[in-house]
Amino acid sequence: MNNEHIHRPYARVEAVVIGVSAGGLDALSVLLEGFPTDYGLPLIVVQHIPEGVASQLAVIFDRKLALRVKEANDKMPIESGCLYFAPPGYHLLVETNRHFSLSIDPRVHFSRPAIDALFESAADTWGPALAGVLLTGANADGAAGLRHIAEQGGLALVQDPAEAQVDTMPRSALALFTPHHVLPLAGLRELLLQLDC
């Protein structure tokens, strides 16, 4: 993908998916700090977490952020201005009628939830109206999914590996294809905020 192509009408983006692993708590805090309650897009996050223990992610971010925050449930409709986290032990997928579904299919890159599963299903739903963001992590999950987003005409964003707490995940994406933007968290944050104008 070549960078001359990014004169994109950002207003067309209807949803944001985010994949993150090791270092995620800090990265997401910086990325989403100060997002307004009326942010016009859904933000859907797969953060790798251990299976079999209840996740505190939704509770933690609900306290920190003005956005509404939920752990995604099976068949839950997807709403704008809401931040969703995948539950531990389940893949989180987007159905074309814009609700979630969960699965306990085998792990992908040793992970369930897997970023690839979310990204690929979201790209099949929103096509060019999707932005995908891949952040810090010690694993190759998400690279193929982010490429799939770009192939469907969506916007592919990667955290600058030089800034990432663990750079394996962003580097795996860069090894696979050239995303539209490689930026530090502050830049990604600005860009996501602009998508909602």
Partner: peptide, 9 residues
Amino acid sequence: YAMASMKRR
């Protein structure tokens, strides 16, 4: 069936 995971399988 829910088609997103069906497709993956």
